[in-house]
Simulated scan of single mutants.
Amino acid sequence: MRKKVVLSWSGGKDSCLALDVLIKQGYEVACLLTTVPQEIGRTFGHGEKTDLIKLQAISLSIPAEFIYCTFEDYSERFVSDLRKIIDKYGVTGIAYGDLYLDGHREWGEKTAEEAGLEAVYPLWMEEKDSLKALGAFVESGYKAKVIRVRENVLDDSWLGKELDHDFLSKIEAEPVCPMGESGEYHTLVYDGPLFSQPIQLGSPEIIQLETTNKLEFGEYRLAAK
């Protein structure tokens, strides 16, 4: 019997790579789990509209589940909603797309344990391998755009860039983690091998969210493959 897990989902390259690896390893991903702080009404990690997460879920044919929480009760609500996910989908584990930050893994493992689940880290690596990981994404067939940058690290010229070989060579020259593991940049995956339909993105504009700049799409829909 295949192991059934819920995948912590941001909509970006890391969670997409995690999904790809999990499926290739024989896991069944029962649903995609995204946190939405009530204070901002957008996804926690990337500040993305939940409608775009829903489009990804439709194209991937995997249900999307949202945890609506506040910054203060984030961990508590995460655990309580995970228990509901267990009842609804019968999962035995939760998978995360974290790469190498020990603090993130400690939180994920503690949260999983409290909910009675196994914590799975399909992408876990050493920091020195992050450039190789970005290269693997570029070669994977998935398509993603940079949709958010920390303004004190990368300027607005990075917004909208495709994660391709040109991006790979340019980000390597910057004093940042090539995979943006510390939040230097965030991405949105809009097509790839597991997508039945690409997400067509239009009418972009730059908005400010806290200490970051965000590429906001005014139009988005599923298109023909």
Rank of each mutant, 00 (worst) to 15 (best):
T50H: 03
G47H: 07
W9H: 11
D164P: 13
T35I: 09
A133R: 08
K13F: 12
I53T: 03
I85K: 00
K145R: 14
V120T: 00
M125H: 03
Y220V: 13
L188V: 14
G26I: 03
R77F: 10
S182I: 12
G47M: 05
K214D: 15
R77N: 15
A64K: 01
K24Q: 13
Y185T: 10
V146C: 09
E174P: 00
L52V: 15
E219D: 15
I147A: 07
I53E: 08
E113N: 11
K214W: 13
S196H: 10
T35M: 14
L209T: 04
K13G: 02
L82Y: 08
M1E: 07
T50V: 14
G116Y: 00
Q25F: 02
G11V: 11
L117F: 14
S75E: 15
S196W: 05
E162F: 05
I94V: 15
T111L: 14
A30F: 07
V36A: 13
N213R: 03
E114S: 11
L32N: 08
A30W: 00
D14F: 05
E162S: 11
M179R: 02
V138P: 12
L22P: 14
I40F: 11
Q200I: 10
E151F: 06
E210T: 07
L159S: 06
N152V: 05
L134T: 09
M125Y: 00
S157R: 06
V153I: 15
H165P: 04
W9F: 12
T111A: 11
R42H: 09
L52P: 15
F217S: 10
F71N: 10
P193E: 04
Y68A: 07
G12P: 13
F167E: 00
P175D: 10
K4N: 00
E174C: 09
D102V: 15
R150M: 14
G93D: 07
V91M: 01
I147H: 04
E127H: 00
K88L: 01
I86Q: 06
E139Q: 10
G108M: 00
L117K: 12
L159T: 03
R148A: 15
E113C: 11
R42Y: 06
T34D: 04
V91S: 01
D20N: 10
P198C: 12
Y89G: 04
N213V: 01
D73C: 01
V153E: 15
T35C: 13
V6R: 02
L123A: 09
T35W: 04
G103Q: 06
E184I: 12
Y89P: 11
E72C: 03
K132I: 09
V146M: 04
L163G: 01
E151I: 12
A224D: 09
V6N: 00
K49T: 11
W124N: 09
K110D: 12
P193N: 04
V153Q: 10
Y142F: 02
W158S: 13
G97Q: 10
K84A: 15
R221F: 12
L188D: 01
E174N: 00
G183V: 07
V138T: 11
M1H: 06
K13Y: 06
W158I: 11
T43H: 05
L209C: 02
D20S: 14
E126W: 02
G141F: 06
S8K: 01
G218C: 08
L215R: 03
Q197H: 14
D98N: 03
E72K: 07
K13Q: 08
A30T: 07
L33S: 14
L215C: 01
V176H: 03
W158L: 05
